[in-house]
Every structure is written in C-alpha cells, then in structure tokens.
Design a protein around this nucleic acid. Structure first.
Lengths: 145, 145
DNA sequence: TATTGTTATACTCTATAACTATA
DNA sequence: TATAGTTATAGAGTATAACAATA
C-alpha cells in the first residue's frame, strides 16, 4: 500500500470541515424555496437539456428506486418536473417544467456563488485551488471509465 | 459588492462535485456499521474528551432539538453513547461509551483516509491544497468570532 | 427471465407545538 | 419569564419485498 502523505490527511480533514459549511448552505437554500433536501437535490440533478430516467435519479440521490416515485410525485404536483416516456417503454424520463428550470437557475446561482471563505482567498490561491481541484476531478472521471 | 473571480466560481463547482464523492462514502461507512446518517453524524460529533449538550448536537446536526431525543435514544440503546447531568440541571450532556469511542475511531479512520482523487495528486498539489484550505479554514474561524 | 417503475409496509427523520423541570 | 429537553403528532424520507408492464 502506498504511503499516504501527511498533507493529504490534513487536506481531507479541512475539506470535511468546509463541506459542512456547504451542506448547511444547501439545507438553507432548499428551505428558502420550500423544498426538502431530496427534492432540491432532484432539481439540481435534472437538466434543462435532456430527460433523466427514474433509476438514474435514484442512483444519484443515493436511495432506493422506490423512493423516487414519491419524491417526483411531489415535484410534479408543484409543477416543477414531469414524467415522460422513453423509447424503452418501461423507462420514464424526468424533465423540468419551465417553472422547474427557473427555480433550478435561482438555486444554482445562490449555491454556486462562492462562499466567503473562498472569495476571501487571494487571487493566486483561488487560481491554484481551481487548478488542483480540476486535476483531482479529471482523475476521478478516469476512474469511472 | 466585490467582483467574484472566475476561478472562485469554478473552484466552488469542483468542490461541489467532490463533496458528492465524500457524501457517498459517508453513507456507505455508516451503513457498514448499521447506523443511519444522523446516528453516524452524532458519533462523529461526540468526542471522547468532553460531553456535548443535546442542544449543541441539534445545532450541528442541523435539525430541531426534538429530533435529537430519538436519535440519542437509539445510540444509547446500542450502548454507544450515554446521557449525563451537567451543572445546569436542565442540560443533559452526551458522552461516548467505550464501545462508542471504539466505533468512532474506526469510522473516522475509514472516512478521513484521503480518497484516491486526493492521494493521486502530486506531493506539491497535496501540500498546496492543504495550505490553501488551511487559510480558508482560518478565515472561517475568524468569522465566527 | 430480467428490468423499470410502482405499491405496500415498517421504521427513521423532521418540524411544529405543547409540556416538564429547571433557571 | 426564559431555557433545555421531552412528548405528541403529522408529514417526508428510507429500505425491503412483492407486483405489473415491458423487454
């Protein structure tokens, strides 16, 4: 087993700490719009571009497929999302309604506005952070293949 | 309002992506030990050193104080945590049992072992990441004061 | 036969409000 | 009066298992 560098351990701890801050923000933003976290998560996952099968949504929400039925029912009742038919007639694809797209934009803007702990870093730190996380993200995508 | 640099926005997006990976891991680790996420979160928050009031736990778990009662009941039933009396006799302080401390150690080791996307970064990137996140974390603490 | 989504069920989480015991 | 924790209640999330429709 490869030796894990001390910097990696400390970076992981710090990252966990900052994740808590982001999690708190996500809860707050969802609540502002009268959404529960899984409902907000669904709105986050759905794109204006293409439909998402129920099963894919379940995987991304990290829950059983049976739960997705109820969550989507509520979004559909609020007029934010809708079920559609796919080529394979067993599959139902989810899309956002116009209202859903609009709410998604608002939430994303609110949530992706960099938090203060990030904007207060120097320009150089911001740039370095973006580059390093970008490399990490690339490595992650190669794993998935 | 200060201009937000593009690097900050992209870093925030990348951070969100990596958070998903960590969230998935947390769910998995909790499940491995037969704990629900809030139960595992409580085990994470409690320390071997000092007791934590129920209200403080509720704040950290981001839920109403009334929920904490049931969550702690379950941990107590499993012999992982226990309620104790504080000086102010209205307050109940939570502490970990021996078994609770042991399980906490196992979970923390499993969770804080830096993920592959982090360990595969170069030594230089790991060090820079640790330093930058450390500065961000410091700025965060000053906010709280 | 296998897969997708749904339904049924039971348990957990969650917020709100009312209650108790302290302060 | 105010605060910490509990209880009661109702709604939402969750996993498991069984089911219908489709492949």
């Amino acid at each position: 087993m490869a030796k894990v560098h001390k910097d990696a351990v400390e970076a992981a701890e710090l990252l966990f700490e900052l994740m808590q801050v982001q999690k708190r923000l996500f809860h707050a933003v969802a609540k502002e719009h009268g959404l529960t976290p899984p409902q907000a998560g669904t709105l986050w996952i759905l794109t204006p571009d293409e439909g998402v099968p129920m099963s894919a949504l379940a995987e991304q929400l990290m829950c059983d497929a049976s739960n997705v039925t109820g969550i989507v029912d509520k979004l559909e009742a609020r007029g934010l999302a809708q079920r559609g038919q796919a080529e394979d007639r067993r599959v139902k694809v989810l899309t956002l309604t116009e209202a859903g797209v609009a709410l998604r934009v608002v939430m994303r803007e609110r949530f992706l506005t960099p938090p203060q702990w990030l904007t207060r870093l120097s320009r150089e730190d911001q740039r370095a952070l973006r580059e390093i996380l970008g490399r990490a993200s690339e490595a992650l995508k190669q794993d998935a293949e």
